[in-house]
Design a protein around this nucleic acid. Structure first.
Length: 717
DNA sequence: ACTCATCGATTTTTT
DNA sequence: ATCGATGAGT
């Protein structure tokens, strides 16, 4: 029996949202403006499908791009439907394909426990292949070649098809690398992120019984952020929805900002043509921002030609005017932002209701310096991720090798980590031997002498092989136990402990964190196994699980801001060359750049401040930029423009009245400290001017603090 | 195998 | 200015 009734899930929806929930049959396109309640529509539609249409949970597939979006939708669905949500497919594109591909792997000659290579693994494999083909890695930069291959896959271009359209010598090399890269992946029983999509499409296209099975399985397919789909994703949806034709796509062409990674705005622009009989609904009522902010956003985006006409409005009043402010240079800009943040806080804003957006990551530095000195607690989104840290990747590589020793990239990674006397020369000889005998690197480990290794190296290789075999002999047990065993028996923990440095300490903590992840997995998984654990974490490299702090001001790039909202938003560096970025101007992708600006503006609920500096330090020199054309495109109505001379604004707003403490502790690197609100941590760096960096053990985060103001006390050295 | 110096590039990012 | 990668030297 459904727990929700129509009265519950239709209450509080506006007419357009209601249509989007109730039009269940046939293709539907929802043009969802920023802040128009699209997640609400998606979740309530699922509730309606289950509660009133009689769809079974496992007949509904709801696809998102990020784990964060999938998690949010899943949580809201469980709140709404409780047990009726059991069996729903609420997954990212990649997780969906991973699940389909596991069951169809045999069609492609893969085993079900295939390994998924992340970006770094992929580039490393490209590099290996380049070396194997004896190409100059100076002329052929692995990253660049990899990008070409990735693009090809996003376009569903196979190695053979790529070879046919080669137009230059460079292309010829890419074709050669692509071909061998694909064969190496297959031999390693591994796929990369792009393969998850491309191979799933391949299976569905080439095997009719598989196609029919999955087409029948999903009576209703819902997709979020449709404007960000690439060609492969488009084709996947087309295939999956072909039978029932109940494809529900939600998106906003004005928020398409990922063309550079293959997103094709034409997918949403031409949805109605691609899916005849489409019913289109526009959600234009915004529940987030004041009309001053929406007016600025509407006016800006009207300068784009490639869009679907739409005008956002809200009933939240006009609100405060949008401020456009010119300052002397990037330091003045940063100081201004810091002072304004302090004011907002005095006014009653919480730190986590405030955000600063910038176009490029490099712009955060000056800002951070000033915020640290002003004692404003902040977090930067987009730093190094947990699963990408070297030690975490090492440990995962060990686990991958245990599960799938043919995974050569992982095996090469751990072969000499910790150091066990298997150097580059030995590795090279083993690789040559493997290639010469048509066997895998793993199999070559059996014949170190034949490969021409010296006695000491032979012993080391035998040791590695014995270690792996021993660990492999007992894999049917809780994953956390395996992980701990790997750490002990590989000597990894030991070698880190021997370092006796703060960095090593932090790495050990990260590894412990992974043990905890394994423990949690064991409790939550339906059928826990090493293979499935690895699958889960290869597609879940989100940092969001590890953040979520109390009252911190958020700093991030505009790209990272999509989908979020803040009461007060600052956007810095609105200058020609910075934003729009010089590269975008060259590449004539100004419309996308303008959409990025639109995304930024529409994140703000109440206060929006746009800044630009007359001069700015860049690449060692100093540039003098004119104001961004986007600022010229804003209306005069409800927009207030000011130009602040170097000192004029300082007088109006003195630095926040925080008295320096008198009992400043003396610290050195490696000291353990306790922070009033952030808990315990270790000092990892000391800078001039009384700034220390502390790594907190609570969440593993690092934070820069000013000794004079931070509530820090020393607990041990 | 590790450290140091030099060269080059330098938008955005998820899975 | 700064980060990263590469190559030479210890």
């Amino acid at each position: 029996m459904p727990v929700v009734s129509p009265e519950t899930y239709l209450a509080g929806l506006n007419p357009a949202q209601r249509d989007a929930v109730l039009l269940t049959e046939g293709p539907v396109l929802v043009i969802a403006g920023a802040g128009s309640g699209k997640t609400r529509v998606l979740t309530h539609r699922v509730a309606h499908l289950i509660g009133a249409v009689g769809a079974k949970a496992n007949e509904i597939l709801a696809i998102t791009f990020t784990n964060r979006a999938a998690d949010e939708m899943r949580t809201r669905l469980w709140d709404l439907l409780e047990d009726d949500a059991r069996g729903l497919w609420v997954l990212t594109f990649h997780a969906t394909c991973g699940r389909i591909l596991r069951r169809e792997a045999a069609h492609l000659g893969y085993k079900t426990n295939f390994t998924i290579y992340d970006q770094a693994d992929q580039v490393r494999l490209v590099k290996n292949v380049l070396e194997e083909l004896e190409r100059d890695t100076k002329r052929f930069v692995p990253r660049g070649i990899h990008a070409q291959i990735s693009n090809a896959k996003n376009q569903l271009v196979s190695p053979d098809a790529y070879r046919e359209r080669v137009a230059s010598f460079y292309d010829q090399t890419v074709a050669d690398v692509y071909d061998l890269y694909q064969r190496r992946l297959h031999a390693a029983n591994a796929v990369d992120f792009d393969d998850l999509l491309m191979l799933t499409v391949d299976v569905l296209e080439r095997f009719p019984e598989a196609r029919e099975k999955w087409q029948k399985a999903f009576r209703y397919v819902l997709v979020d952020e449709y404007q960000d789909t690439n060609h492969a994703q488009y084709r996947l949806l087309q295939l999956l929805a072909q039978r029932h034709l109940n494809l529900f796509a939600v998106g906003d062409p004005d928020q398409s900002i990922y063309a550079f990674r293959g997103a094709d705005i034409r997918n949403i622009m031409e949805f109605e043509r691609d899916f005849p009989g489409t019913q289109t609904i526009a959600l234009e009522q915004n529940y987030r921002s004041t009309n001053a902010i929406l007016g600025a956003a509407n006016a800006l985006i009207r300068n784009n030609t490639e869009r679907k006409e739409k005008n956002l409005f809200s009933d939240l009043g006009i609100g405060d005017p949008v401020r456009v402010i010119e300052l002397e240079d990037e330091h003045a800009e940063a100081r201004f932002v810091a002072v304004e943040i302090a004011r907002l806080v005095e006014e009653g804003f919480n730190g986590d209701e405030i955000a600063v957006f910038y176009r490029t990551n490099a712009q955060s530095r000056v800002l951070e310096d000033v915020l640290v000195r002003q004692g404003i607690a902040y977090q930067v989104i987009g730093g190094p991720r947990f699963y990408e840290r070297a030690e975490v990747k090492d440990l995962i590589a060990y686990l991958q090798v245990l599960d799938n020793p043919f995974d050569t990239v992982s095996l090469l990674r751990i072969a000499n980590r910790p150091r066990r006397g298997i150097g580059d020369t030995s590795i090279g000889r083993l690789q040559t031997y493997a290639n010469g005998h048509g066997i895998s690197f793993w199999e070559a480990l059996e014949f170190p002498e034949q490969a021409g290794l010296a006695a000491a190296s032979t012993r080391a290789v035998n040791g590695l092989r014995t270690l792996i075999l021993a660990l492999q002999s007992d894999l049917d047990r809780p994953v956390a136990g395996i992980v701990e065993d790997v750490l002990q028996r590989s000597g990894y923990t030991e070698s880190l402990e021997a370092e006796r440095t703060v960095e090593a300490q932090g790495r050990l903590e990260n590894l412990q964190e992974l043990v905890s992840v394994a423990r949690e997995y064991q409790e939550q998984a339906e059928e826990p196994s090493l293979s499935s654990f690895l699958q889960e974490i290869s597609l879940y490299s989100d940092q969001d699980a590890l953040r979520g702090e109390s009252s911190l001001v958020t700093l991030m790039t505009l790209h990272n801001a999509k989908g979020l909202e803040f009461r007060a938003v600052f956007m810095i560096g609105l200058e020609e060359g910075i934003f729009p970025h010089a590269r975008s101007i060259e590449e004539q992708s100004l419309e996308e750049e303008r959409r990025l600006c639109y995304v930024g503006l529409t994140r703000a609920q109440e206060r929006l401040t746009l800044l630009h500096a007359s001069s700015r330090a860049l690449y060692g020199g100093r540039t003098y930029n004119i104001a961004s054309r986007f600022l010229d495109e804003l209306p005069d109505e409800h927009v207030e423009r000011e130009r602040l001379a170097p000192t004029s604004w300082k007088a109006r707003s003195p630095a926040p009245p925080i008295a320096p403490r008198t009992d400043v502790p003396t610290l050195s690197t490696g000291d353990s400290v306790r922070h009033g609100t952030l808990g315990e941590g270790v000092v990892t760096r000391i800078e001039a001017g009384g700034v220390v960096t502390v790594r907190f053990s609570g969440d593993g985060s690092e934070r820069r603090l000013v000794l004079d103001y931070a509530p820090l006390e020393k607990i041990a050295s």
